[in-house]
Amino acid sequence: MPAKISVRGVNKVFATGAQPVQALKDAHLDIAANEFVTFVGASGCGKSTLLRMIAGLETRTSGAIMVDGRTMTGPGIDRAMIFQHYSLYPWLTVRENIRFCRQLKVHTDNRTAADVEAASGRADALIQLMGLSHAEQAYTHQLSGGMQQRVAIARALMSRPEILLMDEPFGALDAQTREVMHDLIRHVHRIEGSTILFVTHDVEEAIYLGQRIVLMAPQPGRIDTIYQVPLPKERHQDMKLAPEFLALKKVILERIRETSGIKTDLQQLEKLSSLASIDKVQA
């Protein structure tokens, strides 16, 4: 079976600054249909850049990205993106936001009365699924951060995309809301059968959600290690304390630390504290 998404030798160089920055170097990755893959790594590792390239929002310097075996050339309705924030339309109500894609030409061309009715039903179903029934006539700024992200997810799901690209979607939410959202997105993954690529800086989130974890490293941005998550497909919050969960978390955290380039800062810090003790001795 061919991969749903195939990343082949992709490079990305940002040449806008004083010297070119290699944001992503020679990335190879195959993702199967209905897989849930999470991406972690120290800042500057290119995980968001890779996701945005798969979305078609960022050009690649070289290499190829294939979706369903076809070379991808730009954004498409088969791949929906969910951002961390500021992506909702504040001038529209919750329901209008969710139905936004319905007024675009790609969806209005050659559509039948049955399509229109199905879409209306889908909007209702998504509002139900996301627990937004009481808020569907509200404007988005009247909602909490968690509710806003539910709207963003519902809006992305509206056009039945096969692939969901999520760029730190829960990064701005508090811990309790995030747990609820984790189970919600796993539920979406199960019932929609979507392929999900999920970028995060939270290792626990990456393990809890992902079937595979892609660990990326900076300078130059690259794919470092890919981990299989040794947990059953069905997850529940208790698993976060399972020994295999904690063992994997330790391994990943250590690897991120090793590759982050922050070690030099720690050495610098030690140097500073030794300087402080010299001062004390002299005093």
């Binding site: 929906a80 993106m81 909702l88 675009l104 963003a152 992305a156 690209l165």
Partner: peptide, 26 residues
């Protein structure tokens, strides 16, 4: 916000639609 524009792009909006349905109302 760029994310408002990019969200529309991933939902299949054309250039004209981005101006008409996102940039102007925003």
């Amino acid at each position: 916000p760029m994310t408002q524009i990019e969200a529309a792009q991933t939902m299949g909006a054309s250039r004209g639609e981005i101006i008409d349905k996102v940039i102007l109302p925003s």
